[in-house]
Each structure stands twice: as structure tokens, then as C-alpha cells.
Design a protein around this nucleic acid. Structure first.
Lengths: 199, 199
DNA sequence: GCCCGTTGTGACACTGAGTGTCAAACGCGG
DNA sequence: CCGCGTTTGACACTCAGTGTCACAACGGGC
């Protein structure tokens, strides 16, 4: 059973999205994000500007799409951490899913990462990405924290811890992108260990 | 000696900025940020659209400007924390500068805070704000951390800790804005205490 | 084969942010 | 009153994003 009931149309749509994305990233790499216009992307993908916007909500959406994809694994990884592991350590472990991929594909990850903080417009996109991760991860973190007496709703402490971990991840990623001499995983260990002890 | 050599022109410019800002915030409160156009703001301030952009780089800049202003005090507060206080505790203490102001002016702070996370465009602005605070605060935090053997440049651990603290602050602010029944300062204590012990 | 509704597409027009250019208006010292 | 530098507004332009509409492509039923 397919988890998403893949109809023919859905797959066609997916193929078009992939092609548009591919062309867009080619242009981004060559000219940068801001200097690339939607018209150029649409032309490169052989469609009208209007049609582009039927596949992606915005130019930023192209970037968000790629980042979401490359980071889906974190939630899965978090699920697979041992149940008795403390939340901070579990988050560090789950992050290994992205960290290892980034280190393995450093040649493409590093320029991407550099672009993300060189282009001011994209910083908002990164924030949006973190917002989504925060939503998925917070409940998982909350499950690992000592229950609170008489408190309804999502646990603020879990949200804060998750958000802090994401902040650490970002610092580590940014530092790593600029300085190839350190391993990303060591950097993340150092940085998360400094904020809160990793048991 | 004035720290900023306030010429007549500078003060005039400041006065205009204030007036524009005032009109803009009146409109934002009435219609929301996105629905308010630059033309409306310019008209309300009695100037042309083009002139508006000579005073503010963008519509978002109006918001950033106000947020920067209301948060300048944090850096000062950080300087005044006892030198032997551990960094996390010092950050918590320094945040009290904003927290107390927000609680004292809850009637205006709360709607502002709500607007900041209701309007998607403004989330990028908040990120930019945090980026600036991070820049100013990181060196101060680094000064409170055990020196590292043979490591040049700004301390990554200090950046991570500062960024995490800002993440906590944001979670606390957002929660507080939506739920008037808890004190912001208690919320921040709880949240920062959960991430790392507050000595 | 033809007719049908659904869906994808392009053309056009429009709003709104932001920028460059230029000429007119303003303010002030001489 | 004159000149000089600054401020301003008008105009034109680019680019993102949206609404509307007419048309082409497709697939099924007859």
C-alpha cells in the first residue's frame, strides 16, 4: 500500500516539480538566488511564468522544498532513539541523520549552506523550515520529559529545548560551511555539549 | 560630548522617522501589517511613496526599527551582570530588561507579539533581530566561558549558547502572548531552566 | 467516430514592493 | 538676493505574486 495514494496525475505533477527544481538550482548555483528571476526559471523549464506559480507558491518555496526533503529523516531518527534516552541526547542523535548526509555530500551541502546565509531573503526560509521541524519534534521531546502536574496543551519546556537544539544545529552548520577543517559532527557535539550536558 | 554628533539634520531626520513610524503603527494596528501598503503609510505621513523609502529601507524595516529600540537594553544589562555569574544565568538576567518592560506594557506588547507570529512576512524580521542580538551578545557570553586551548576567532560555543537563549526567549514570548494567565518572567525561568540549569 | 466534463496551460491585466533618474523646490550662508 | 547642497516628488521601470478567462489536451461514455 502506498502511503500517499500515488495517482498518475500526482506522479506527473511530481516529475514536473522535479524538473523545475532542477533547472532552478542550476540557475541558483550560477547566479545566486536573488539574481535569478522566476521568468528565467520558467523559461529554462519550458513553461510560462504563470504555470511556474501553479507548481511552487513562491521562489523561496523551491528552497524550502529541498530543505524539507533533505531533513525529513530527523523525525524518523528521533522515533528510533532509545526510549530512556534523555531528550537533549536524543535530539543530538536524531540530528546525526542530517549531519552525516551533509558530511558525505559536502561538495553540494557546503555551497548550499553558504547560500542560505549569504542571501538575506533565504534566512526567512530557514526560519520557516525550523518552525516546521519544531512542530514535529516538540511532541517527541515532550514524551521524554518528566510529566508536569496539571498542565494542559503542548509542553513549553519541550518546545524550548527543541528550539534550542535547532539553534545549535544552525550554528554548527554555519560554522562548518565556512571552515572545512572541522568535522560537522564534532562541532555539533561541542556546541550542544556547551549548552547542556550530553549524557 | 554627544556619542552621536547630533547635527540639526540628523535630528530633523529622526523626527520624520518617528512621525512616519507613528502613522505606520496606527495603520498596522488597524489593518495588520500585510494589508497596509507603503502608499497608505506615506500618505498618512504626508509624503510621497518615494520619500518613504528614503527613510526606511522597506516596510519590514519599520518593525525591525521598533524591535531594536525596545531591546537595546539587553546588551547593557548583560554588561552589568556580575562577572562571576555563569553565562546562561547572566543571559537570563539580562533578558529581564525586556521581560519586565513587556509585562509592564502588556497592553501594547501582547498585540505586537501576536502580530509578529501571525504575519508570516514578519517572522523573517524577528530572525533578523535575533541575528543582530546574537552578534552583540556572543562576545559577552564568550567572556564568561572557560577559555579554549588554541582556538582563534569567535567562540562557537558562546554563539550556540546565546542563540539557544534567544530561542528560549522567543518561545516564552510567544506562549505568553497567547496565554495571559502566566507571568512572562516565570515562563522564561521555567523554559530556560529546562534547557540548562540556572545556577 | 463524436461529445462531454475535467484539468493543465498561456495570455493579459493588475497590485504592491523596491530602485534609478532627473528636475524642481527648499533652506541656508554669503 | 544669489548660489549651493540637500530633499523631495514625479515618472518609469523591474520583479514577485494573483485573478480571470479562453483554449488545448485528455480520458471516458456513447
Amino acid at each position: 500500500m502506498p502511503p500517499t495514494p500515488t495517482t498518475l496525475r500526482d506522479r506527473a505533477r511530481g516529475a514536473v516539480r522535479d524538473e523545475v527544481s532542477k533547472q532552478a538550482w542550476r540557475l541558483f548555483a550560477a547566479q545566486g538566488f536573488e539574481l535569478t528571476t522566476v521568468d528565467q526559471i520558467a523559461a529554462a523549464a519550458g513553461m510560462s511564468r504563470r504555470t511556474f506559480f501553479r507548481y511552487f507558491e513562491s521562489k523561496e518555496d523551491l528552497v524550502l522544498d529541498r530543505l524539507l526533503e533533505s531533513g525529513e529523516s530527523v523525525v524518523d531518527a528521533m522515533h528510533e532513539r532509545p526510549a530512556d534516552e534523555p531528550p537533549w541526547t536524543a535530539l543530538r542523535g536524531a540530528f546525526e541523520a542530517i549531519v552525516s548526509v551533509m558530511e558525505a555530500h559536502a561538495v553540494s551541502s557546503r555551497p548550499l549552506q553558504l547560500m542560505l546565509h549569504r542571501e538575506p531573503v533565504l534566512r526567512g526560509t530557514v526560519t520557516e523550515l525550523h518552525r516546521r521541524w519544531l512542530e514535529s519534534l516538540t511532541p517527541l521531546v515532550a514524551g521524554r520529559m518528566p510529566r508536569r502536574r496539571g498542565h494542559r496543551g503542548p509542553d513549553v519546556r519541550a518546545a524550548a529545548m527543541t528550539s534550542s537544539a535547532l539553534a545549535c544545529l544552525e550554528i554548527a552548520q554555519t560554522t562548518w560551511a565556512a571552515d572545512p577543517s572541522v568535522r560537522l559532527s564534532s562541532l555539533l557535539d561541542e556546541v550542544m555539549g556547551a549548552v547542556s550536558p550530553l549524557d
